[in-house]
Amino acid sequence: MKQATEYATDIVTLRGGAGKLAAWESTPPDGVDTRDTVLLVPGFTGSKEDFEAMLPILAAAGFRCVAYDQRGQWQSDGPDDVSGYTMDSFAEDLIAVVDQISHGTPIHLLGHSFGGYVARAAVAAQPDRFRSLTLLASGPSSTSDINFAPPQLVAQLIESGGQQALWEQMSQSMAALVPPAELEFLRNRIFATRKANMVGIMRVMEGWTDYTAALRATGLPILIAYGSSGDLWPPSVHERYAEELGARTAVYDGVGHLPNEERPARVCADLVAFWTDSH
């Protein structure tokens, strides 16, 4: 089972608009100067554990990193009503987290998959809070050019069958590939995540907002990072999106939707280079 690594990582509690947000904070070890603060935001059915392999690598490079469970995910508080899971509420939580960890200094922001959607909304709303934006396996649209069931259908599945129905769909493809202990963690996380969170995210994705123009207008450095094989969005979609945003790209050959878990060292190397150039 995934758990907080002992390497310079602490379990911390932050505050969001719906209550406590569970988080991990990883700080540079003794003898390594802190360069900047980084916030990492997980996606649909995800959590802070999605960045477990990255945190010690980034800390060793001098970056203070915070990863948190979004409202209603895994170990974070969240309402039981779907109306409590709007893009505005997710983005407001993110801004609140920034206020708690930044000490008034702009930070680097990374969002994975749906976490990238939330990151875009937060940057578009409050660009002065951020030093850069990284979208990791987070394409431009939830409804076109994506290898994923229509959000409306996924929402209906969860509404009718709850976490069990979603887990049955997910576990079929993972059972032969994921070690038993990891599979147990993923199952526990799905069942601990509020049903309203998952339905709410699908509704947000169904009515996604195009922030391309707003993000370009911020002038912030942007990195589009993605796997070349098996991501939810084809490489051509990520490439086109990067061009529209004027963003840098990082591509991971033979990797699907989880570069953060499949190639953490390579992802971190690219992030460190990007953040260093963003000064």
Rank of each mutant, 00 (worst) to 15 (best):
T249W: 11
G254D: 09
P56F: 07
A4H: 04
E261I: 13
L136C: 03
I224M: 14
E182D: 14
S89W: 00
E168R: 09
L14E: 06
P264H: 05
A53Q: 11
Y226T: 09
R203F: 10
L271V: 03
K195M: 11
Y226H: 14
R35G: 00
H103L: 02
L14V: 05
Q100P: 02
H257Y: 07
E184Q: 15
T27N: 03
G16D: 03
V12M: 06
T212L: 05
L245E: 01
M202Y: 06
R263H: 01
A181K: 15
R129D: 02
E25W: 01
L186F: 13
P264T: 03
M1N: 05
R64H: 05
P127L: 04
P180S: 15
A96G: 15
T9Q: 04
I190A: 13
S173T: 14
Q126I: 04
D145V: 02
T105S: 10
G230Q: 07
L232T: 09
R194G: 14
D50E: 11
L258T: 12
A273Q: 11
A96R: 11
T276M: 01
L220D: 10
G46D: 10
F90H: 01
E206N: 14
C65L: 10
P29T: 08
L40Y: 03
T134V: 15
V272C: 13
G78W: 10
A125D: 13
W208C: 03
A137Q: 10
Y211F: 15
Q75N: 08
Q100T: 09
V38R: 07
R64M: 02
W24D: 00
G62W: 04
M54Y: 02
A119K: 06
Y68P: 01
D88L: 06
L55R: 03
R194A: 12
L215F: 15
Y68E: 01
P235I: 12
R203Y: 09
S132K: 08
D253R: 13
R194N: 10
T45F: 02
P221M: 09
M170A: 11
D253S: 14
P259T: 12
A265S: 10
Y117C: 00
L166G: 06
I190P: 03
C268I: 09
G207T: 15
I107N: 02
Y117N: 03
D270S: 04
Q152P: 00
F274C: 00
L153A: 12
Q152H: 05
V66S: 01
G116M: 03
N197K: 08
T209F: 06
V199L: 12
P264W: 06
L271F: 09
G162T: 10
N188A: 15
L186H: 14
H238V: 11
R240H: 12
Y252L: 04
A155H: 10
M198W: 10
S102F: 05
A149Q: 07
Y241S: 06
G16L: 04
D210R: 06
L110T: 13
W275D: 03
V12E: 04
P264A: 02
L55T: 01
D231G: 14
R129W: 07
D210V: 12
A214C: 07
W74Q: 08
S160V: 06
L271C: 03
A96F: 01
L55F: 02
G227N: 11
T9C: 08
M1Q: 06
I146F: 02
A53P: 00
D277E: 14
P28S: 09
V178D: 08
A273N: 05
D145R: 12
